[in-house]
Design a protein around this nucleic acid. Structure first.
Lengths: 168, 168
DNA sequence: TTTTTTGTTGACCCAAACGTCATGTTCTCC
DNA sequence: GGAGAACATGACGTTTGGGTCAACAAAAAA
């Protein structure tokens, strides 16, 4: 299949889910529930994004994942490269390894043009665009920064409140 | 890697190799030698092309592979589809499976435009273009149709003469 | 008819992508 | 400090693309 891997798709969806939380920290568990991806696998993907500095992960009680920058400052190109590696776009569209050496395929220039377009597009598209492309979503209100427990109007991806035994 | 599979690359190179034989039948062995691909694997790929009616294979002594049509009549799109299947181009560039349903990625229209371009290009590019793109090649003369044994100026991919003990 | 030469096909092997599980590590709260 | 809560990670399982091998089937020569 000529497209990016499902893993990249997971990464982008997860980041979009983080964004709908409005800058608040989310749990991997909740992102997985919200998007339907397998949680253990998602954890590994998030981990890759954390190593590349796209998100920050905090362990422990009330830990979670946060976007490191504003959604409008994170372009899809860096997400793709974080997940797929630097050379994620094939040098020859037709899958010919020696293309450019002893063999030159007839669509080489055509492909080079497309690659340019694709990279430009991914550079100019940010996470903010991802969320706005989704369009009107199920009711979701960004939480104020200090709200650690809230009852309604949460993001799909917002963390469930920790099970604190409140003493009365 | 965002490109077609290596198997498709093999198929195209093999067909190009067949074309340089000038409509003559070639052995899988010779195509493999000429292009450097693994022979048993090439045999399977050729077999797929034969089932799709792109080439004809003949078994037995002085058998071999022939293009079913003129190289200018075989477009790359049908080769790609023969090898990769009908849905070789991903519906979502970003690898998001549910894109188009509950989720819509921000490059969906962009990708649709690219797909159109790619399909048009592959429809209008033929095997003849593949060979002419390779450019000036090592000395190669097409053999007349009745020449079953020849000594020099053969195609890289032309069959070696069968080991007949010629009686003098 | 037998032999030789070719393509065909089922079985198997390997590595990478995708996915799961259990355990370890580092947090915060009590 | 102890107990949970959360992410991190090594080990493992599954699927698929790429590749190999050997037995087989067909076709022509001898």
């Amino acid at each position: 299949m000529m497209c990016l891997s499902q893993t990249t798709g997971y990464a982008i969806q997860a980041l979009a889910c983080l964004e709908t939380a409005g800058g608040q920290s989310c749990f991997i568990r909740d992102v997985a529930d919200c998007t339907g991806m397998p949680k253990p696998y998602l954890a590994r993907i998030i981990n890759r994004l954390a190593r590349q500095g796209i998100v920050s992960a905090k362990r422990g009680y009330r830990g979670g994942i946060v976007l490191n920058r504003a959604p409008g400052e994170i372009c899809l190109l860096e997400v793709v490269e974080a997940v797929e590696g630097k050379d994620w776009i094939g040098p020859c569209m037709l899958g010919i390894k020696k293309c450019g050496g002893e063999f030159v395929c007839p669509v080489r220039d055509f492909w080079a043009g497309l690659c340019k377009q694709i990279e430009d597009k991914l550079s100019s598209t940010t996470l903010a665009d991802v969320v706005s492309a989704i369009g009107p979503r199920p009711p979701h209100a960004a939480r104020p920064a200090n709200a650690h427990r809230r009852e309604g109007g949460r993001s799909n991806c917002a963390p469930k409140p920790p099970k604190t035994k409140r003493r009365k």
